[in-house]
Computed example of a mutant assay.
Amino acid sequence: MEKKKKFRISGKLIFNLIVFGITVYLGVYFFVSEDGLIDLLSKPNSFSLFWVIIAFLVYDFNIFIDTIVTLIFVRSQYKDFRFIDALKVSFVGVFFGAITPSNTGGQPMQLYLMSKKNIGVGFGSACMTQKFIVYQIVTTIFSIFAVIFKFEYFQSAFTNIWSTLFIIFGFSVQLIVTALFLVVSFCNGITNKMIKLIYKIMKKFKFVKDPEQKIERLYNEVSMFHQANKALFKNPKLLVSTYLLVMVQVLAILSVPYFIYISFGMPEVAIASGTSVPNLFDFICIQSFVLFTSNLVPLPGASGGAELAFTMYFGQFFVLGGVNKIKPAILLWRLVTYYGAIVISAPFSYYTKDKKAEDKKLKELELKQE
């Protein structure tokens, strides 16, 4: 007779409950509170639907660019890889990235889908990592330029010790992560030393099962990544085209708040109240601050952190002249960049429906071998 398994409250369960609680709270707050979604829909004349649609189209254009970049990387070795396949990969990444903490679930599902298209896992992993590094480098460059050109505004956001720490820590983490990926990309010797250090830590503290196997897999993936990296730099045309495309992609993501700003007629309010009207460049710079600050929050969609960062940086543009549109502005921004993205990408999760079954078979096979 089989013994019943005892119910244990694990750290994962606690984390999931916290995530669920925050999600429910934010949903209630932005949907049913004053100036929330219900009030917004009941007053359709309070914002311009045209500019909201433009915001949706601009943000969805970033997914299209991501598809093109994926296609370029994969076709460098697999010529039969189609545009529709790359589109599926991009949407799967959007969906699983949005519903998992710190966007961690997107790449594994993308690799699984690519493997179903007979793309080698090692090569697919190298492509996705390369794409992420290009994106990380471009966003970091945008952040550095934003701090330089908008330093006075950036400095004005330091309203108290907590906001100061939040901003400085977010910017520092982005720089460190980018530097780390650059080291992994170009410094093979340092990378091997880092892997050896990771192995020593895993072996000493014994928090990972079969550390030798994990390290061997890591060595193989890094080796495959370095090979792909060398191939990329042997093709200047591929390198330049991917960086230019990702620049356009990042510009699309960063420009969304500007169209939300216009949709509420805030430029007219600013003129009437005698304050200066920010332009698209201003919003792109400021949104880059929001991006690197909110990325600190390890929750799906950076829930809570994204809203806080948006309020902290854009509050003065949506609250002026007796008009307060910050809450509906956050709501529309999140609808465009997060909830809307989940809705349009959710149907593509169908293409990964067999992953759990295959993972289960793989685990059973590993147990039999042991």
Rank of each mutant, 00 (worst) to 15 (best):
T100D: 08
N118C: 03
M114I: 08
G122W: 02
F96V: 02
L165W: 10
V92P: 01
S115V: 12
V94A: 04
F145S: 00
M109G: 08
N118A: 10
P108S: 13
F154R: 04
G106E: 09
T104Y: 13
M114S: 10
S143D: 00
T159S: 14
V138Q: 01
P108Q: 08
W162D: 15
Y112A: 07
V138H: 01
S115R: 14
V94M: 07
S115F: 12
S90F: 09
K88V: 12
P101M: 12
S163H: 14
A157S: 08
M109N: 15
I168M: 13
V134R: 03
I144W: 00
Y78L: 12
G122V: 03
I99V: 12
Q110C: 07
V121F: 05
K117F: 11
F83G: 07
G122I: 05
F151D: 06
T159H: 07
F166I: 14
K116P: 05
I148A: 10
I137K: 06
F149G: 05
Y112Q: 11
G93N: 02
L165R: 07
Q77V: 13
D80F: 08
M128E: 11
V138F: 03
G120H: 06
C127M: 12
I119Y: 05
N160V: 08
Q107C: 09
V89W: 08
Q107E: 15
S156I: 08
Q155S: 13
F149R: 04
G120N: 09
L165G: 14
I133N: 04
V147G: 03
I141A: 06
N160R: 06
Q155E: 14
S156Q: 09
T100W: 06
F145A: 01
P108I: 10
G97N: 02
P108A: 12
I148G: 02
T139S: 09
M114Y: 12
D85P: 05
C127V: 13
F123C: 00
Y78V: 13
G106L: 09
S90D: 13
Q136N: 06
V92Q: 02
K131A: 04
S102H: 15
N160E: 07
G124E: 04
V121K: 11
K116W: 11
A98K: 02
G106C: 12
Y112H: 07
K131Y: 06
F149Y: 09
S143L: 00
V138A: 04
A126W: 06
K131T: 01
F166S: 13
A98R: 02
S125C: 08
F142P: 00
F158I: 05
Q155C: 02
V134I: 14
L165K: 11
Y112G: 07
D85G: 11
I137L: 10
A146P: 00
L165I: 10
N160T: 06
F81K: 05
I161G: 06
S143N: 00
W162S: 15
L111S: 04
I167S: 13
N103I: 11
M128R: 11
A126L: 04
W162I: 15
K116V: 09
F142M: 01
T164C: 12
V138S: 01
V138G: 00
